[in-house]
Nucleic acid binder design. Structure first.
Lengths: 203, 203
DNA sequence: GTCTATACGGCGATAGAC
DNA sequence: GTCTATCGCCGTATAGAC
């Protein structure tokens, strides 16, 4: 295992990611980024040409970091129950390690004329194995028939929203970050239980 | 009923709200606001002293618009099932009429040293009738015993998150705004059903 | 109350020395 | 590759005429 020093470019990019995720594009200045990287404005533009370009690069990565795991797990070849447990577990672990990710991604996707747009096209020509799987189980009579788009959205909501409202929750319940994360760990059981109980209950 | 012309102050404030909600504080300029109000920068500062002050005023209102109805309905004097149905229905109607509200509020609450902070203190010394009610029903054996904070958070998540990810959903599923709202109307039944089925199922 | 004109600072970006 | 110095622009805010 070779020990790598971080290159200046990587240091700047990491600093930029940190600041962008915390404050968003509009509240971030190139000077912010340079300072966080213990560098200077000239170098930021030397490596990335502009604040805008740097932002695009980071947003692309964050977008992928958020949605690639979702698509990957939902298209896994696993039985329904195991898949749901795995999805909730892995997503919560991912978001615990990068809790600002969803707020950042969704926030920067606001507005019709968004800086984004093109990213969507490339992202999900993907087929959705999860929905098919729910239809199959329903056909077999193992779970109730219902609108499974609603189920999928509820699953996403219950996993992701707590991180978006993390600050609110922490203040309201007077929690440290550690305590909040323990609360989220509890959800690894609570969410699948609710979804599965509903699906299995005679409609 | 007297017909009121909007005052210049109100026109500017409405314009500011529209722009702030769409783009956030950092991506909004005083010029934006003035243009949307068919006015000029001087007038914006004449009525509100600064962009910051104007923002604070609007944020306060949006914060209240979001959380006051939540607290109000959850503290209503209604049986559990009716309360949950009412909560989901009223919140979805509210958010349909102002779909950018949650994204705006949560986005501007990011970061520890946020422009906000003080608002929290005044907001919820409120007791939470909803959680007490769940405990009561559990004591009577009408619903299962579980961590009701998780239930409450799941309820919020399923109602609010879809509006935060609205753009994503609309693009992914190729929906118009009308179709998205119909999808949300469907949730008025789907969400309470899931929650209640889970609560009533023998744990 | 409203507008034009302007002050002033901070922003993104680059030139040019090393 | 790195840094200092600086340019030009656009941001917020205000002075002052009407």
């Amino acid at each position: 295992m070779i020990k790598h020093e971080l290159s200046t470019e990587e240091i700047i990019k990491d600093a930029a990611k940190k600041v962008f995720l915390e404050k968003g594009f509009g509240n971030t200045t190139t000077r912010d980024i340079a300072e966080h990287a213990s560098s200077n404005i000239a170098l930021v533009n030397y490596y990335f040409r502009s604040k805008e370009k740097l932002f695009q690069e980071i947003f692309r990565e964050c977008f992928a970091d958020t949605f690639a795991p979702i698509a990957r797990i939902l298209n896994d070849d696993l039985p329904l129950e195991a898949k749901i447990y795995k999805f909730v577990d892995q997503m919560i672990e991912l978001l615990k390690s990068d809790p600002m990710l969803p707020m950042f991604v969704f926030s920067e996707m606001r507005g019709e004329n968004s800086k984004i747009g093109s990213l969507m096209a490339e992202m999900h020509p993907k087929e959705n194995r999860f929905l098919l799987q729910l239809e199959e189980e329903a056909a077999k009579g193992n779970i109730r028939k219902t609108n499974f788009d609603q189920i999928e959205l509820s699953l996403m909501s219950m996993v992701i929203f707590p991180f978006i409202s993390m600050n609110m929750i922490k203040m309201k319940q007077n929690l440290t970050t550690e305590e909040f994360y323990r609360f989220m760990d509890e959800r690894k059981k609570a969410i699948p239980e609710m979804i599965l109980t509903y699906l299995r209950h005679r409609g």
